[in-house]
Design a protein around this nucleic acid. Structure first.
Length: 201
DNA sequence: GGGCCGATCAAG
DNA sequence: TTGATCGGCCCA
């Protein structure tokens, strides 16, 4: 395909969707980021790291719907993170958007994150990405593909070379370390620092 | 109703 | 390395 078919990509296997989301642009609140790092979470196969692992709840309900919608959650009492729902309806797979490069609305992003002086850090990390875009609970359950909601996902301006896509274990995940479901664009300064999960003692 | 812990971040 | 800070989920 010459032009990336986003709806088709997202409705497919979640790890393939995650790869394809690299280089895509997410716009919200007057800011656009180019995605440089994502993680896949499966709603099947007993992926214990998935928020859908224990079944459907009010919090994760949107994950069980069709692909292309936003699953936004609040964590550590202060941070928002955004996922794109993937797979077929009822599958409950999703891709966490971990980092991006601000390509439009730089002044607005800086205004939202006044403490950040290095542009690369504005959306470097899942909570920082949401902060830069002004994403919060109001984005939960909205359509990211048809422009009807507060956030819009679009294909890359130029194709992403396959060899620049690298993968490794997911961040902060205890189980399933064999899964290489964290994907990033190699060499991008906006990719978040990888921190292996540290067991409690 | 109580308690624990988290797909994090920033400061020390 | 640690504190901030609170919603979701499990268990009683």
């Amino acid at each position: 395909m010459t032009v990336l078919d986003l709806p088709e990509l997202l409705a497919g296997p979640v790890d393939r969707a995650a790869r394809g989301l690299l280089g895509c642009r997410l716009s919200a609140g007057g800011v656009t980021v180019r995605l440089t790092e994502v993680e896949a979470y499966a709603g099947f196969g007993g992926d214990e790291a998935s928020h859908a692992h224990r079944g459907r709840t009010p919090r994760n309900a949107v994950m069980f719907g069709p692909a292309g919608f936003a699953y936004v959650y609040f964590t550590y009492g202060m941070h928002w993170c955004i996922n794109v729902v993937c797979g077929v309806e009822g599958e409950a797979s999703a891709v966490l958007l971990r980092a991006g490069e601000v390509v439009e609305g730089l002044p607005v992003a800086r205004e939202r994150r006044p403490s950040v002086h290095n542009a690369r850090d504005l959306a470097r990390g899942p909570a920082r990405l949401c902060a830069a875009l002004g994403i919060d609970r109001s984005v939960y359950g909205t359509n990211l593909l048809d422009g009807s909601g507060p956030a819009v996902l679009e294909p890359p301006l130029r194709p992403v070379p396959a060899k620049t896509v690298h993968s490794g274990p997911r961040v902060g995940v205890t189980g399933a370390l064999d899964l290489q479901w964290r994907f990033w664009l190699d060499g991008e300064p906006t990719v978040s620092a990888y921190r292996r999960h540290a067991p409690r003692r």
